[in-house]
Amino acid sequence: MAVKQPISKATIWSWLEEVIDPEIPVLNVVEMGIVRDVVMDEDPIVIKITPTYSGCPAMNAIEMEIHKKMREKGVHSFKVVTDFKESWTTDWMTEEAKQKLKEYGIAPPEKTEEEGDFLTGLKNSQKIVPCPHCDSLETKLQSEFGSTACKSQYYCHGCEQPFEHFKCI
């Protein structure tokens, strides 16, 4: 039996920062904006998470990793709840996280476009994504869908390398 110690909210957050996104192993689930809240008013502790993409298979893995981490730290009275009230956006990723993505070779998401002009944008959607390897702007969209739900595929004419771009949602 572990002796019951009062744990601070900050401690829980710091533990959650040790949980890595399985599909983007340079980022943790806090930087990703997946963990939305830690509620400690009552027992059990509630950890609120929100899915990045609806069909993202990593979400189950992330939930399991959070469970594992909490148990590893000796906390057994907690639950992980998926909350849909706010919908995840790439704008929640920290600047630091975006920089890490770029260093890892994935072009980070830019700020999401203003709402309202989607149908107009539908007809002339050509945004420029700089290459994460050589910063060239001579890049071309290959496909809006990539190896995981959150990425699209680009090709760089500067360094003649394919690269992935984290989609903005």
Partner: peptide, 24 residues
Amino acid sequence: LEEDLALANVALDMIGHASSLYSY
């Protein structure tokens, strides 16, 4: 290949949408 991935991605989104609606 790109299209194979695209269709699988859209399929996954659709099943993800269904799953959250069913859960509710």
